[in-house]
Design a protein around this nucleic acid. Structure first.
Lengths: 182, 182
DNA sequence: TGTTATTTGTTGTTTAATTAACAAATTCAT
DNA sequence: ATGAATTTGTTAATTAAACAACAAATAACA
């Protein structure tokens, strides 16, 4: 991957941070491109250089994270549940502003929750198929839905509460529980 | 004043913040331009676009603040001592990283302390001349030195202690004392 | 409703930052 | 002290961001 120009990286980071902060302050509908560029400390036209509009911006942010998470799946699935969960919670911690805004704020887009839940379910499903799981006789579908909803729910409260415990701790607890299910 | 290009402002801010942070972490001699540009997240050559070297960078930072303070003198001297002192302490608070690094850290350059003390003395001297002061029969020079050293000393501890009280509070205390002297 | 004001996209030009590359000077370690 | 590695300044070419200006679309509101 040809590494991106530093200016592009900085500009896009500033813009992304900007819209997330604004989403915590006002309704998404009322956020203007001007708001975003002001907060990001870039020219308004610069925003258009990278994104079509605020919806495109948010979409691209979501896609990037989902893709990044899927890539992480590739090697994290080698680990035990506890360790793999820790890897992901460190990712959530690193991108706390994004995940807390998207999953655990008033402006939280329900569409992202669905998409994220879908992603988690896909990951669990693959894992079940590989390892054959602990629950013979139970429908994979139910097991996966059970685990994924639990996972997302725990993540949501962890974010809402401002990450009261470090990723390692919450991941151990969640990992132990997942191990009993999957 | 033709307002500066936003890119220049951002770059210079990042570079200034960078060197101040580094001064709190290592000896000034051991700070490289590479260190500065890395921390500032700009290309190394960009630093040279704005400054000759790290000494020039620091010099310009100092000059800017001294000039800014002198400009503030122009209108702050209209105020009572308490209010004027508050204005300046709000400035110190706003630029805490700079002043705490330069006056109240291990890397604190003694050369800045002298320069700053000089600036404070000049301001007090002017004020004394205008108002004729409260201490007839005493040498202006001694009165000014007395007050300026007290002022700088109080500022230093306020910075060293991480601004334990808000500008308004410390300014009131210091202002009352200055009023008895000047 | 009409009419102001704001926001939106887009454009052309100018300016700054990035990048990679280089020789020269320093610093480091043996 | 010597060779290796780092840091320093500088350069030329390329790319991105800023800026200003614009008409068109929306929103605000009287």
């Amino acid at each position: 991957m040809p590494k991106v120009d530093r200016r592009i990286a900085k500009t896009q980071e500033a813009i992304k941070k900007s819209i997330l902060e604004l989403m915590n302050e006002k309704d998404f509908d009322n956020i203007t491109i001007q708001d975003i560029s002001d907060r990001a400390n870039v020219n308004r036209s610069t925003v258009y250089l990278h994104y079509l509009d605020k919806y495109d911006l948010l979409e691209k942010m979501v896609e990037e994270h989902i893709n990044q998470l899927k890539e992480t799946d590739e090697w994290a699935c080698q680990e035990e549940w506890i360790d793999a969960t820790q890897i992901f919670f460190e990712y959530f911690e690193k991108h706390f502003l994004f995940f807390s805004t998207m999953l655990a704020s008033k402006g939280a887009a329900p569409s992202f929750r669905s998409k994220f839940l879908e992603y988690v379910m896909d990951g669990f499903k693959d894992e079940l198929q590989k390892t054959n799981g602990k629950s013979e006789g139970l429908s994979d579908d139910v097991v996966v839905k059970f685990a994924a909803n639990a996972y997302v729910g725990v993540l949501e409260s962890w974010l809402k509460d401002g990450m009261p415990s470090p990723p390692k701790t919450i991941a151990r607890e969640l990992g132990i529980l997942l191990e009993r299910i999957l």
